[in-house]
Design a protein around this nucleic acid. Structure first.
Lengths: 211, 211
DNA sequence: GCCTGTGAATCCATTCACAGCT
DNA sequence: AGCTGTGAATGGATTCACAGGC
């Protein structure tokens, strides 16, 4: 497939999904996987798997399948998950703390290099990882100094927009937003929302639809 | 619009999004809102707001807009968020603990009625909310007794499928899954995945695409 | 004049179906 | 024979554009 084709957003979301089972397969020593097998694990259509992959190249062998190790490498290259990303986190309440210490970020090559909060009680606290909680007022300075590339926003709704603006001004260009508001952002920057209460609202609706 | 029209899944996701700013408007005493205003806050297209709403009825007044209080009521009815939902949570690590104590669930009428873990060290621990951590082996019994309607899965990947199956057998029909695997489920049940590391993978990809 | 409700048009995503390679 | 790669067909979701009521 031609390189210049526009790649659907939905495709790259699924690509990230394919990555995880492939890692487990590599660990277990599985050498080859078919689109059908991978599709079943990820709960998608086999044709979808093939189409998604072929936006990026021809990774498979007809009549055989995909080489697990090779496909894993290609996907990591596509998602830039073969290199480390530096994260900042703002809002060290229950959720912020849990995210900071969550193993899956480390596993996925995301590394926290700074933690911020606006509560004077918390500032200066030394966390188990060795990080020290910094005041929100130092975001500008530290984001540049430490080279923060993405940030996680775990602040209360009232603070989210203010903090997001600070982050964007400091050159952070991507935010994963756990707060329940949609933040304004410059054209060049990215925000993904992860307010899980909306997921529950969704479940509630669909649950009651099916009696 | 006719009542029997199939309602897009994307629509109901956005409906949950509209709910939040409407609540803030009601608190502030705002009486009326236009599709344009609401759209701007939620970062969507105004026509989208109108179309979404008109799947459920005619809530607005031409030339005027939507009555905030009335619209809020209608949306709460649609999403069944005018009643309380009983939640269970499994996996009381950092993340599970943080979710259990997260204020936004309470605000949204989701109430935790049980917490489970498989670690003998944790079982019996009394949490700040008064809940006692129960062994996973009691899921069956307690889910029925307490009337758990949805569950949050914050277990390590290796345990997720097992626990999910237990929950489904116990009559829980909806799961919000924070672990990085796609669980098998009966036809009648629902799973929404909320593995936020895939969101970061997404951000990483799009970030590097835009230089 | 203003803003909703909604068919029609457009855009995007998924699935089918089969040609092509091993 | 088996499984990938991909155009074509289908199915959904978004946006346009305007008629209709305040």
């Amino acid at each position: 497939m031609s390189r210049d084709t526009k790649i659907p957003g939905a495709t790259i979301e699924r690509i990230a999904l394919y990555l995880r089972p492939l890692e487990r397969m590599e660990e277990k020593g599985t050498l080859v996987v078919s689109s059908e097998k991978l599709a079943k694990i990820c709960k998608v259509n086999p044709a979808q798997v093939r189409k998604d992959l072929c936006y990026f190249g021809e990774f498979g062998v007809r009549g055989v399948g995909y080489d697990v190790r090779e496909l894993l490498g290609e996907i990591k290259k596509i998602l830039l998950s073969d290199r480390q990303w530096k994260l900042g986190i703002v809002g060290m309440g229950n959720l912020g703390m849990a995210l900071l210490h969550h193993q899956n970020f480390q596993k996925r090559n995301f590394r926290f290099v700074a933690a911020f909060d606006s509560d004077p009680e918390k500032i200066g606290e030394i966390l188990p990882t060795g990080l020290i909680i910094q005041p929100v007022s130092r975001i500008r300075e530290l984001a540049e100094e430490l080279g923060i590339e993405m940030a996680i926003l775990a602040t209360p709704a009232t603070e989210s927009q203010g903090v997001a603006s600070l982050l964007f001004e400091a050159g952070v260009r991507a935010i994963l937003n756990f707060s329940p508001i949609q933040v304004r952002k410059p054209e060049c920057c990215l925000v993904v929302n992860a307010d899980f209460t909306v997921n529950l609202d969704n479940l509630a609706y669909h649950l009651s639809k099916s009696e």
